[in-house]
Nucleic acid binder design. Structure first.
Length: 152
DNA sequence: GCCAACGTTGGC
DNA sequence: GCCAACGTTGGC
């Protein structure tokens, strides 16, 4: 059982989009970064919990919780020439890119902004608050998970 | 919209 | 295999 944080732009796919999906479940496609890919492919397990983070918006921060309901499998958008995420190097037999399925669990009672997270000494070593971090999927320690929830 | 930070690409 | 150029991310 692991904890994660996943970033998404609310204008593109926000927490309310996830909540509105059939079965409140959606595949998390389009990750095209090897470090994030490795976590999707190798480490994320069914039952893992995910902080849903809104990035590239007015108030970036954690807005909800989701659960991994299918572990890593081939990201089919890499094989779709019409997709923004098309990568001709990825094939059915040898996929390069992976995705997981996540299901909406709940929204937080209030959004916890990046600004607020940065002010917490307990979170000083989490990758999220480190400057210049661009990972769209990152691990959260159990201690960090509990602490962040205690801010809610 | 700016720009710092970072990852990827490709020439050599 | 180095590294400059380029593209992207994402906070501000």
């Amino acid at each position: 059982m692991n904890y994660w944080l996943m970033k998404s732009e609310p204008d593109v796919f926000g927490i309310d989009h996830l909540a509105g999906c059939p079965a409140q479940t959606e595949h998390w496609d389009g990750v095209r970064n090897y470090q994030a890919r490795n976590m999707l492919r190798d480490q994320m397990q069914v039952g893992d919990l995910v902080f849903f983070y809104h990035s590239n918006c007015k108030v970036p921060g954690i807005v909800g919780i989701a659960e991994v309901v299918r572990s890593g499998y081939s990201d089919h958008t890499a094989r779709d020439p019409r997709s923004n995420y098309y990568d001709p190097k990825s094939t059915e037999e040898r996929p390069i890119w992976f995705m997981v399925d996540i299901r909406f669990v709940r929204k937080l009672e209030r959004n916890i902004s990046l600004e607020e997270l940065k002010q917490q000494p307990e979170l000083s070593s989490t990758p999220l608050v480190r400057r210049g971090n661009r990972l769209s999927v990152m691990p959260i320690s159990p201690q960090e998970w509990d602490f962040i929830l205690s801010l809610e």
